[in-house]
């Protein structure tokens, strides 16, 4: 029982860290209609930006997280308009494949600039706080806080600003949105900036929790993808629900199965969910 409770807490923490990049991934999918597989490398780019700000310039962690957001967002916009946009003329599949390639290039650019060594944020490591049967780290609590704040800010942007409403309009029906005078280029640009920025926040939070190397973002790519698919590709609340589901299942499974089967468990969850709900938990049927 004790183990179950602790694992649930670990799963919730893992889920909240996964939710931020999953949100970014799903937002990009909703508006631009392709899975952007460069998000792993974008998350890494954001994390390195945050690390530079923190270790190089002595910025406090909240500022570093914000810088991680901006760096990844700008990198995402650059990638979209330098490479992916052109490929998009050949169809969404080409764009998805292109994003995979751009991700690899970006990862190696980071490797070239920073080397392969592990990097750590300038942050003391604290022992966990114990609440009865459950323990949790102060840094994890802070990370969950950052994750929730990022999600709340994104939600507020979508529902309270006119740009956010335009984004949702394009996601709902691009043709109708265009008829209503929404500029698709501006919406695409904003979406990519915010989506990639959220991935950067996710990468930074993982870097804070563990340590940083050029593969940091690449390691979570499959789980992020799994979370977005389970939740329903393109569905914003779906991405969050999916991330928690994947995070908790991956941790829970290690109680029963050898931990090496973690990824297999995520894919079993995808298989089960999609068997009964082909569009994902909160997704709509593809038209």
């Amino acid at each position: 029982m004790e183990a179950l409770l602790q694992t649930l807490v670990n799963g919730l923490v893992a889920g909240s860290l996964l939710a931020v990049p999953a949100l970014g991934f799903s937002a990009i999918f909703a508006v631009l209609r392709f899975p952007n597989f460069a998000i792993g490398a974008l998350a890494t780019a954001g994390a390195y930006g945050a690390w530079l700000a923190n270790v190089g310039l002595g910025a406090p962690i909240p500022v570093a997280v914000a810088i991680g957001f901006v760096v990844a967002g700008l990198a995402g916009v650059a990638v979209e308009f330098a490479a992916l946009d052109r490929l998009g003329r050949a169809g969404h599949l080409m764009k998805a494949i292109g994003s995979l390639a751009v991700g690899m290039v970006l990862e190696n650019v980071i490797r070239f600039a920073f080397g392969n060594d592990l990097k750590a944020f300038d942050l003391p490591l604290a022992r966990d706080i114990v609440f009865g049967p459950v323990r949790i780290g102060p840094q994890q609590l802070a990370s969950v806080g950052f994750a929730l704040a990022a999600m709340a800010a994104f939600w507020a942007f979508l529902s309270l600003t006119s740009l956010g409403r335009s984004m949702r309009a394009v996601a709902d029906n691009p043709n109708l949105a265009r008829l209503k005078g929404v500029d698709p280029t501006v919406v695409a640009l904003v979406t990519v900036f915010l989506g990639a920025g959220l991935c950067g926040v996710g990468g930074t939070l993982i870097g804070l929790d563990a340590s940083l190397d050029p593969l940091t973002g690449g390691r979570i790519l499959l789980s992020v993808f799994a979370a977005a698919v389970v939740g329903g590709l393109g569905s914003i609340p779906g991405a969050v629900v999916g991330a928690f589901l994947i995070g908790i299942t991956e941790e829970m499974s290690s109680l029963a199965l050898a931990p090496a089967y973690r990824l297999a468990v995520s894919f079993a969850v995808i298989f089960l969910v999609l068997s009964f709900r082909p569009a994902g938990l909160l997704g709509r049927a593809v038209r």
Partner: peptide
């Protein structure tokens, strides 16, 4: 699994 970003569990 060495691809995990946390090994708490």
């Amino acid at each position: 699994d060495d691809k995990k970003t946390t090994l708490r569990t």
